[in-house]
């Protein structure tokens, strides 16, 4: 595999626990300087794949290269090329932010003086200078995560792994972390990011790999994936609940496909191939039937729908999941 083009390549990676495969025939190619989002439900194998690619966990099958080095035989070289931000902010709570960065700098063998200087640079880069001397236990979730990111960037590694970097953060902290990640990417870092949040993948990732039961089930740009489940949809919001069935019938006739109904939001949704003509026809049919509607709109499917469609997760009781389930029937 061309190591100048791809920062991470994985071929048929497999990881077995007893008889169960946590990862099976896992393939991934992350182009240098891009952000790859690894999207999947809990237990899909996201963390397992990150732990294998960062040499924390040995795989049973297949092969992978990170920054051109083989993870099985060149673990030490790989560890020089990567930064890892795990699900917990893996920093020392008692030490100050600066002491943490200095300690990790020493462990990267920068030497005491350079480690100190690098700590100051990183505190500034991640906007932690003001709180650099405070104990980490006094930090907010977002600050902790930024410190965690800073610690991973001590050697300015070309490849950064982020395992659910914003899980458990409030929206403000999440935006802070996203901003920090974007800053790193603009500096040329390749990022492999796992997330359960579609919005996060949509916001940050150039390409998304959807993973389910240890295997990549779809791969592409966020736009590609949205197209993949059948293009655009028409949403109609009814004025009152009694008319929902009638609206659904009309929309199904026009679109020739299964509609989905969310009665609590009085929303009927159907997938269409011919965008604008279908919209006009639905509007006309509703008007001639004398049904009052509050809203009618043409939209692209959300990543939620794509995700649930691809992973076939019907156990989630949210409305979007029903929408996606029914959309998948077509």
């Amino acid at each position: 595999m061309d190591s100048t083009e791809f920062a991470v390549t994985a071929q048929s990676l497999g990881k077995r626990y007893g008889k169960a495969w946590a990862l099976k025939d896992f393939n991934l190619n992350v182009r240098r300087g891009t952000v790859c989002g690894l999207l999947g439900p809990n237990g899909a194998g996201k963390t397992t794949s990150v732990r294998i690619l960062t040499t924390l966990l040995r795989h049973d099958e297949g092969s992978a290269r990170v920054a051109g080095y083989d993870i099985a035989t060149q673990g030490v070289q790989v560890r020089h090329q990567i930064g890892l931000v795990g699900q917990n902010a893996a920093v020392d709570e008692v030490l100050s932010g600066r002491q943490n960065l200095e300690m990790f700098g020493r462990l990267y063998h920068l030497g005491a003086r350079r480690a100190g200087r690098r700590a100051d640079e990183l505190l500034e880069q991640f906007r932690l200078t003001d709180t650099g001397k405070k104990a980490v236990s006094a930090y907010s979730g977002g600050m902790r995560r930024r410190l965690d990111l800073a610690a991973s960037m001590i050697l300015s590694p070309p490849v950064l792994f982020l395992d659910e970097p914003t899980t458990g953060l409030d929206p403000r902290s999440r935006n802070e972390v996203w901003g920090a990640v974007r800053g790193l990417v603009s500096g040329g870092t390749t990022v492999l990011l796992t997330t359960q949040y579609l919005e996060e993948a949509d916001q940050l990732a150039d390409r998304i790999s959807v993973i389910d039961s240890g295997t990549v089930v779809a791969e592409g740009t966020p736009g590609d994936l949205k197209t993949q489940i059948g293009g655009d949809r028409i949403d109609v919001v009814a004025h009152d609940t009694e008319t929902l069935e009638e609206i659904a019938r009309i929309m199904e006739r026009v679109a020739g496909g299964q509609s989905s109904v969310e009665s609590d939001t009085r929303r009927v949704s159907v997938g269409v191939d011919n965008r604008v003509p279908a919209l006009t026809e639905v509007a006309r049919a509703l008007e001639s039937a004398g049904i009052a509607v509050e809203d009618i709109a043409l939209r692209r499917p959300t990543l939620d729908e794509v995700f649930l469609y691809l992973t076939g997760d019907g156990t989630d009781s949210s409305n979007t999941s029903e929408t996606a389930q029914e959309a998948s029937v077509r």
Partner: peptide, 17 residues
């Protein structure tokens, strides 16, 4: 449990340290 051990293990430091 806080992942600090994993961070150490993902770094190119001496494993015995």
């Amino acid at each position: 449990s806080r992942g600090v051990t994993d961070r150490f293990r993902s770094m190119p430091m001496a494993p015995s340290a």
